[in-house]
């Protein structure tokens, strides 16, 4: 390969020769392809192909009964020019993601790091307790009790008792409070995949680095965190960032469970809820796919920005 690069453009080898070189290289790496093959075949069939199909569908009208009909950019134009609810959903999603994304990310890391500082004996049990919201089936139930809109709701009860308010607040129906409540609950539930990955990642850092650091003049946990832990965790930090981005941009189920399928004034309506509504209630798959494509572009943009930020660590 390097030989071809060094040669001037005039004697550039023909397409055939270059393909020949590539083939040689592929043959030389036979083993690598064997290793990736099982995953890659399944990944291509069940992830890549469906994604490409969805992107193609986003340019069609498809109601799942008749065959898709090509409509060009129509779905995208409708989304931005005619669908007012979508624009509300965009605004809500951006607001929701801007808050829950970074905060949940930070929470996952701080929690994992603090737990890791403790004695191994208490670590497992604390990890379980922190992870509990992700593993318990009806975690929302408690929150709907806390934030119940009548005076029996725990929070209303306490506030009424203290005289802070004189009539119960409709936490989950009043647009003034809905988003805040939803954000609190989502943050409380956010110690999931990233949290566990960070825990495992921290276990993976060899003690030798910390000992060497201690000899080379590191004097406390904070210096250790900045000079050793964070740089060693860079990959996992990127992984966690992607999880936070996808969770916060594609949130739907949790919001629906709290504020219902048709929230007041669409106050907690997100792109993902809009997408589910069109895809699986109205059966407009082309339109729903267009939303998925836009959501994807938004996430990729944010991910690229985060990548640049993370490159600055260490």
């Amino acid at each position: 390969m390097s030989a071809t690069v060094l040669q001037p453009a005039v004697t550039r080898p023909s397409f055939r020769t270059r393909m020949g070189h590539l083939w040689e290289e592929i043959k030389a790496n036979k083993i690598s392809y064997l290793f990736i093959a099982p995953f890659l075949i399944i990944f291509a069939t069940f992830v890549i192909v469906p994604i490409l199909v969805s992107v193609a569908l986003s340019f069609t009208y498809f109601n799942m009964v008749q065959p898709p009909r090509w409509v060009g950019w129509q779905n995208y134009l409708t989304l931005f020019l005619e669908d007012e609810v979508f624009l509300i959903a965009v605004k809500n999603t951006l607001f929701f993601a801007a808050i829950t994304g970074p905060l949940s990310y930070l929470m996952c890391f701080v929690a994992a790091w603090l737990i890791n500082e403790l004695n191994p004996k208490v670590r497992t049990i604390l990890t379980l307790m922190f992870y509990a919201p992700s593993i318990s089936a009806n975690a929302y139930l408690m929150w709907t009790l806390l934030f119940s809109g009548d005076s029996y709701g725990y929070i209303n009860g306490i506030l009424l008792y203290w005289g802070v308010i004189d009539k119960p607040i409709l936490w989950l129906q009043d647009p003034q409070y809905m988003m805040t409540v939803v954000i609190i609950v989502v943050l409380w539930m956010s110690l999931g995949v990233s949290f566990l990955t960070f825990i495992a990642g921290l276990q993976g850092i060899d003690r030798v680095y910390y000992e060497a650091g201690a000899i080379d003049g590191i004097r406390n946990r904070w210096q250790e965190l900045w000079y050793i832990t964070l740089p060693m965790m860079k990959h996992h930090l990127m992984f966690g960032a992607i999880i936070s981005i996808t969770n916060s941009f594609a949130a739907a189920a949790q919001l629906q469970a709290l504020t219902g399928p048709t929230p007041t004034d669409w106050a907690t309506w997100t792109i993902m809820q809009h997408l589910n509504d069109y895809g699986y209630v109205r059966y407009e798959m082309g339109y729903a796919s267009a939303m998925a494509v836009l959501l994807f572009l938004a996430m990729v943009t944010v991910q690229r920005l985060v990548q640049r930020l993370l490159a600055k660590i260490g």
Partner: peptide, 27 residues
């Protein structure tokens, strides 16, 4: 390992994480 196509596969894996799974049910 180092082999032709590795970068593309890495990118595809990373990007596919960000595509909303909900619309993939029909395909």
């Amino acid at each position: 390992h180092n082999f032709p196509g590795k970068r593309a596969i890495n990118q595809a894996i990373l990007l596919s994480l960000m595509f909303a799974g909900a619309v993939l049910l029909i395909p």
